[in-house]
Write a protein that binds this DNA or RNA. Structure first.
Lengths: 214, 214, 214, 214
DNA sequence: CGCTAACCGAGACGGTACGTCCCGTCTTTAC
DNA sequence: GTAAAGACGGGACGTACCGTCTCGGTTAGCG
């Protein structure tokens, strides 16, 4: 159906590709502050002028490179026929684990500070960052809502606020401390915020935390 | 103890002061990426060479300027004699509200992205950021622990994890979205994470959320 | 030999050209001590960074600029057929007159003090200066030797020493006094040093000084 | 009469003295171009501010330091009673030998290029240089004139021009070549220019060159 | 023998120029 | 005729000195 994008010079496609990759590698290696177009050029063997032909400026290149990172977790394992499949709460766990893992060493994580600073100055970067985080969190909100619908969570849970309380710690740890959030802690986090049992602790029952009526 | 003989040339004190202020203003205005020693110099009327006499380079200046921002919330209102004073849980609310307010328009908040990016490149900036967030969160953890001790919270609450789930959303909103966290939402957040009633909602009773054992 | 493939970007040629000119003008105007790359840049409209792209530093630029000054006197007038042409002694006169004229207001003369001081600090400048003076004086020595061979001068004349006694006064006057050597005095000088009659004094006969008696 | 020099604070005298010495040493060592007030200060232990208290600027210091170098050769050996003493021509030789020696490694010689360049820019330095060379050359001219009067030289010798032809080579060699003028060559030079026999060559008789012919 | 005035050291300060690095534009050349 | 190569103008960096200035501390020499 897409007869539109035909006749793109394959050299262009190729150039854009390798430059993007090199830009990401460069970003992850030396960071936003010391990111130079020269280095990218040298790294991938594409002339500086060519880079500037394809992207208006350094920031646009960075923003574009980031786009290629925007890989959200898939819809989860396709359940075998007849199997019960993934419950909404399972999905919440999976999404958060994925998020924690992403922030534990990926290129994306390495570029995160650059992204945040870039977002403050450049609309394109900002758009990307907001879109990215919105997409991720939307999926989480949806999973929480589904869990509520499914009766796994109480109806009084504010799905949006809960998604913040679940995502927040992972970003916080990446950005404000020297240690990323350990994916293994996701179970405890979910248990704390959503009041479910912490399966990772192997506890088979739930203690109602609120000792008194508050 | 004697205030003697730490005679610092008043010119130095004065220079350091005005430059730091100008640096902060500059950072908040144009950000880390476009921060220029020349601009700071022009802004405060102190010669570039003088700035370099006091700070080895741009980054050191930025890091130092940030230090002046490190204003933690005070110990809370001094209770009137005989009054019951602030409960640990009250203190949790207050700390979080303060955090949310800081991230809602202060210079510090404006410099946050710069800080985060700077932390990635410069050990001094990193130290400051980590120290800053550690101090804040320590206070929060202490307050939560006190609440547990006081029986306001269940003993099974992981104070550290809870503090992340409480602070995280505020940082998340500042850094990953266009909208900072509304301080008015702090009550709901605390209620969600710590399972207390949301006083800000005026609800007089607490519904135990955990409908089932999950 | 083939004029091929020494294709130099015309922009480079042009830049080097105008910068060199401006550098000379600047040198002549403000001298070595106050010579500024900025001023050269402003004078010729070539950016400072471009200048530094072509010369590693200020001194190299100065040395290079001087090279363009290295214009030695030509081989003298081509004698008309049948005419006797220039005698060796005539050539001595001509060379000295040229030297005196050069040191009387040319750019080269203006740059002389700069050159001398520069030579003391920088090998490249030194090389140029020594090479320059050597070339000039060699020509003079050759002419004197030819005059000896032609019997115009006595065989006991030390050509090298004589060339110094002839060139020296011209340099001396430029460098140690406020008044350059008057080219009109060249005749007297030659007469004094080489013992020839001073033709500029209208003396009608030549006493071949030391032809005998050696 | 000399109530003038009374009561100069010995600290001042001492400061001026050591600074001048240090300035000369510095000049001789690193030259005019890299001459630094800081270095002088460090070298002699006198504070920079003190130096600027005594000299208005760097050039004045340099010029003043040079003054201390202005040591002309003495009037020559006092003849023993009854001895014939120094002939005028002897004195010419002695003056030139002294000049050649000065230009062969003295501090003055080391500072020469700086002087020449400085003279081009600064009136004070210029005055000193011209005065210095004038004094020296006046003595030479006087000696030559005396030799003429004494009949050692022909009356047709232009004393001024001759002094240039004698001094010039020494300056030339210092300033335009890598090798200073060898004092041993002074005899040959005088013989060449003044037409006397070169005593250094062991010639036993003097041909009074141009006694006639005027 | 003590006081006062000056000199001195220390060094902060505003400047100017240096030489470096990188940006984003624009020209030239080569494929 | 288009893409690589790279020259160019520009701007900020961090360094080195300049010459000015303001401080206390010291020291000379008069009272």
């Amino acid at each position: 159906m897409t007869t539109s994008d035909d006749h793109v010079d394959p050299r262009i496609t190729r150039s854009r590709q390798v430059v993007r990759q090199a830009a990401l590698a460069e970003l992850a290696e030396v960071g936003y502050g010391r990111f130079t177009v020269d280095s990218v050029s040298a790294r991938c063997g594409v002339a500086r002028s060519t880079i500037y032909r394809h992207w208006p400026d350094k920031l646009a290149l960075i923003a574009d490179a980031f786009e290629t990172l925007n890989v959200q977790p898939g819809p989860g394992p396709r359940p075998a026929d007849g199997s019960p499949g993934e419950s909404p709460l399972d999905r919440v766990h999976r999404l958060l684990r994925h998020l924690a893992e992403v922030f534990q060493g990926s290129i994306f994580s390495a570029c995160m500070p650059a992204l945040i600073e870039g977002a403050e100055r450049d609309a394109e970067v900002r758009d990307f960052l907001h879109r990215y985080s919105h997409q991720r969190r939307s999926a989480l909100v949806a999973a929480i809502a589904a869990a509520i619908d499914a009766g796994e969570l109480g109806a009084d849970v504010d799905a949006d606020l809960a998604s913040l309380a679940l995502s927040g710690p992972i970003i916080y740890r990446r950005v404000m401390t020297g240690e990323p959030f350990d994916p293994a802690q996701v179970g405890s986090l979910v248990a704390l915020v959503l009041g479910t049992a912490d399966e990772s602790q192997g506890a088979g029952f739930t203690v109602s935390r609120r000792t008194s009526g508050g």
